[in-house]
Amino acid sequence: MGLTRILIIDDEENFCKLVKMNLELLGDLSVTIATNGKMGIKLAKKTKPDLILLDMLMPGMKGLEVLERLKKDENTMAIPVVMLSAIGDEPSKTRAMELYDEEYITKPIDGPQLKAKIEEVLRRFK
């Protein structure tokens, strides 16, 4: 069984790096980083990850728009998305959940909690 591939889309570069280090340290996960929405969509299409961690509130293209584009594209529509929220954009989070029935987690979250959530979502999607 190969590594589970995760794409994290978040403008907080240090956060992304630490998530990558944590998840990869905890085992069986490989993490790719995108620090903005456009790059995230491009990488999603290209690498087709097993799961996407998507920050809701980013400068430029917002998380909700990224989600909508991913869900409209047949190459990425089946990829489960876990939204990362710092409770700064409640309406977007609510809308995303209503539209796409996606999971969300609230920051701050530590490595093991994040890994547990990823595993839970992947189990549901299999």
Binding site: L18, I87, K107, G111
Partner: peptide, 14 residues
């Protein structure tokens, strides 16, 4: 505030 806290907690976990 929550974003920096996330960085700290991820660092702590690591």
């Amino acid at each position: 505030v929550k974003n920096p806290l996330s960085i700290i907690i991820q660092g702590v976990s690591y």
